[in-house]
Amino acid sequence: MMKITLILMQAAIFIGLAPFLSGLIAKIKNNIRMRKGQSVFQPYYNLVKLFSKQEVISEASSWIFRATPFIVIASSLVAAMLIPGQRMGDLLALIFVFALGRFFLALAGLDTGSSFGGMGASREMFISSLAEPALCLAIFSISLQLGTTNISALGGIRAVSVSSILAAITLFFVTIAETSRVPVDNQETHLELTMVHEAMVLEYSGGSLALIEMASYIKQMILFFLIAQIVFPVGLRGMSSLTQTSLWVLWYFARIAVIAVMVAIVEVSVAKMRLFRVADFLGFAFALGIIATVCAMLGV
């Protein structure tokens, strides 16, 4: 029972903080571009706003379109529950849980009969299927060091090795692709030639869109968390006093924010690439994953 409460609590914290991360990235990007930019809490306002709007559902669509937001949010929530790494927290299972949400999102994209949806679905599946081997190898090389694929073991990394740095970079590449960030995709645009994720969810509005947005915030936070956990293994162990505990919690989330800052910097400093170049981008990530595995093999 204690464990379940713990899992639910951590999931709740993830849900609560996930939109903030997106707001933070947007804010940093705007500041680098010398703009004032929106508030970091804008994603929360957006969610509230979306819920108060009336939803429009396409006449051509079926129950798949209506059910998808709930399946997508479920996949993200379950992933957030896997993170605390009690019995169920398995890194390899995480790949499959994310795949569930993506599968239905792509189907919903096709369901409305709009070319945008189909285009988005096709591209999203293309990018994610190429990201999967890189993700798998990154997990593999980390797990080889840990001797387990359990997520909680990530906390047990004592020192940062070459292999885990490389794995983290691989994971970073995959994260950029999976969270639809520049140079793979661009969340800010609604230009039909460039959008991938946004095209897929183009027909969504109102509460359903809010759920889907929420799901992608959570997914993003989970991926950032994994990178942070590898690069900055939790240093402060003691949780005896209140100050120590609060310091620990602060450090826990500060690391994730650091990753967010890095993503923001990458986003403003590179240009979006052509869709077919993404294959090279992710191929490079895969090669990095292989090198990480070799390093793990050599024990460095």
Partner: peptide, 12 residues
Amino acid sequence: FARLKPVSYKTW
């Protein structure tokens, strides 16, 4: 939270 009833309309 989503209080307004969804409407059905053509795909954009």
